[in-house]
Amino acid sequence: MDVRLLRIDSRLLHGQVATNWAKAISVNRILVVSDRVARDIMRKTLITQAAPPGIKANVITVEKMIKLFDDLRFVSLKPMILVEDPIDAKRLVEGGIKVKTINIGAMSFDSSKVMVTDTIAVGREDVKALKWLHDFGIELDVRKVASDSSKNLWKALLEKELVKDA
């Protein structure tokens, strides 16, 4: 399986932004990986129907994603994987999904979190996961759409003094 993009976006597949990505990096499948959504029929339906024309979207659990990744039967998939938060992203990488970069779109705010950029809010668990990913050697790339210039989330976290370079 050739994972073309692993993207964190708490909105997952909503709106034109995900469609723009899917086109820019030529994927043949969109995999929305979230245990919560996989159980929520309403959201699951909304998301699979929001897929751009010609590309199929599936909503699966983290566990299933990891299982599929190693399964030779699915070798021809070139998916864009969408997760809601860094914690799920970390679980995927731990489970053996190989990526060099993780793209971060938007992470929604709540009172337990702080804003790092104008669209990205992180909580304590998020920071932990992001640090783990950084230490694992994965680049944390912040872009809304493919044509934006890339910013590094790690730098932003350093500036906010949420993490320290080892």
């Binding site: 909105r11 909503h14 709106g15 034109q16 932004v17 339906t45 909304l46 129907q49 929001a50 938007a106 104008d118 669209t119 809304k144 759409v145 934006d148």
Partner: peptide, 24 residues
Amino acid sequence: NTFRVSLIMHLAGALERYLTRSEV
């Protein structure tokens, strides 16, 4: 209905981008 949700979500995003001066 599905498209309405997408559109509302997208519009809300656009409003936030306006507020944070980070329009696409």
